[in-house]
Computed example of a mutant assay.
Amino acid sequence: MQQQGEEVLIASTLIIGIIVVFLIILFTVFQRRKNQLLREKATEKKRFEREIAETQIEIREETLRNISWELHDNIGQLLTLAKIQLQNATPESLDDISETITKSLNEIRSLSKLINPEFIKNIALKDALQLEVERFNRLQFIKASLHISGEEKELNQKHGIILFRILQEFFSNTIKHARGSKLEVYLQFQSNQLTIKAIDDGVGFNMEEIQQKGIGLENMKTRAKLINADINLESKPNLGTELNIYYYF
């Protein structure tokens, strides 16, 4: 009887020991997995912050290029015209001179919004796009329009910067290469999604070729993935190009 009791005690001790060891192993595995996830999350956060910083620099560089161009070619021409008008001024031409100077001042005011160092950091996506559309129309680059539908929702500020940079790349390609006459941008707000569509009527391109050597397209997709967004670019020769971005709240 005593022997049976000892055997039960030994068996119980072994079972408890096995359970304890199993729990220790399970806890160790869990802790390692938890630490790995924390490290991955920290790495992903650093990568995201680095991407935001790089994107802000790219937007700032693009903005400064635009400002430089407008100062030299647009405002410079207006001021030169005003100077010529003043040199040949007559009482009848004062209204024309005043109009030229007023136009120059309005152009400078438009640029002053972009020069503000807080502009890139704080501006909302809708406002940034509106400024771009106004600039394209003002400088007669292309006939551009912005259409907004649905109940507007506030976007994550950093996500808005990424979205604006993706669209800015599309706009740059449209202006420089598409040779189109019209650019339309749509923001459609839904309960859990923002759909952004940008369409030009330019010369288009072969999608297979751009996918083989299109670094710009890969950059767009990589950035979209960072903010849980999907992106789709469609184009055909002589039928224009369409960019669709699906951002999920």
Rank of each mutant, 00 (worst) to 15 (best):
Gln130Ala: 14
Lys126Trp: 02
Gln2Ala: 10
Ile162Val: 13
Gln31Cys: 01
Leu139Gly: 10
Leu94Lys: 11
Ala178Ile: 09
Lys143Glu: 15
Ile67Asn: 04
Lys176Phe: 02
Asn244Trp: 08
Arg50Cys: 05
Ile148Gln: 04
Gly240Thr: 07
Leu129Ile: 15
Gln168Gly: 11
Ile148Cys: 05
Lys221Asn: 08
Thr55Glu: 08
Arg32Gln: 10
Ser145Tyr: 07
Glu6Phe: 08
Val20Met: 07
Gln130Glu: 14
Asn206Met: 03
Tyr246Asp: 04
Ile245Glu: 03
Ile16Ser: 05
Ile101Arg: 00
Leu26Arg: 14
Asn173Asp: 09
Lys103Asp: 09
Leu86Gln: 09
Ser112Glu: 13
Pro91Ile: 12
Lys83Leu: 11
Asp96Ile: 13
Gly214Trp: 02
Ile175Tyr: 03
Ser104Thr: 13
Gly160Met: 00
Glu209Asp: 13
Gln157Met: 06
Glu242Met: 07
Thr13Cys: 04
Leu79Gly: 02
Ile162Ser: 03
Leu233Lys: 03
Val20Cys: 08
Lys225Tyr: 10
Ala53Arg: 05
Asn232Thr: 14
Leu163Asn: 05
Ser145Pro: 11
Met207Phe: 07
Glu107Trp: 06
Arg33His: 05
Ser110Ala: 14
Thr100Trp: 03
Thr195Gln: 09
Leu37Ile: 01
Glu51Ala: 15
Ser12Ile: 00
Leu194Pro: 11
Thr222Val: 06
Lys182His: 14
His177Ile: 06
Glu218Ala: 13
Leu64Asn: 11
Gln168Cys: 04
Phe170Ser: 06
Leu79Val: 15
Phe205Ser: 09
Ala42Met: 05
Leu233Glu: 03
Glu58Pro: 01
Glu99His: 12
Arg223Tyr: 11
Asn173His: 12
Ser104Leu: 00
Asn122Trp: 00
Gln56Ile: 10
Glu51Cys: 08
Lys113Ser: 12
Leu105Trp: 00
Glu132Met: 14
Asn228Ile: 09
Ser68Asn: 14
Ile59Tyr: 02
Val8Trp: 03
Arg33Glu: 09
Lys197His: 08
Phe189Ser: 03
Ile18Leu: 12
Glu99Phe: 13
Gln36Ile: 02
Gln31Glu: 03
Ile120Tyr: 01
Arg60Ile: 12
Gln4Gly: 10
Glu134Thr: 15
Lys213Thr: 13
Gln140His: 14
Gln4Phe: 11
Pro117Lys: 00
Asn156His: 05
Asn156Gln: 03
Ile84Gly: 05
Ile227Ala: 10
Ser172Met: 04
Leu131Ile: 15
Leu64Arg: 02
Ile215Asn: 09
Ser110Pro: 06
Gly17Cys: 06
Gln87Gly: 15
Leu81Ile: 08
Ile59Trp: 00
Ile75Cys: 08
Ile24Met: 08
Ala82Cys: 01
Phe27Asp: 01
Thr13Leu: 01
Leu183Ala: 13
Arg65Met: 06
Leu71Arg: 04
Ala198Met: 13
Ala11Asp: 03
Lys182Asp: 14
Ile199Phe: 10
Ile245Met: 05
Ile162Tyr: 04
Ile196Tyr: 09
Asn74Tyr: 15
Gly76Ile: 07
Glu92His: 10
Phe205Asn: 04
Lys83Phe: 12
Leu86Glu: 12
Ile57Trp: 02
Met220Tyr: 08
Arg223Asn: 15
Leu187Arg: 08
Ile175Phe: 04
Ile199Pro: 06
Trp69His: 12
Ile24Gly: 06
Thr55Asp: 07
Trp69Pro: 00
Lys143Trp: 07
Gly202Gln: 07
Gln2Glu: 13
Glu6Pro: 00
Ile10Phe: 02
Glu209Cys: 01
Leu86Asp: 10
Leu71Gln: 09
Gln193Phe: 04
Ile215Val: 15
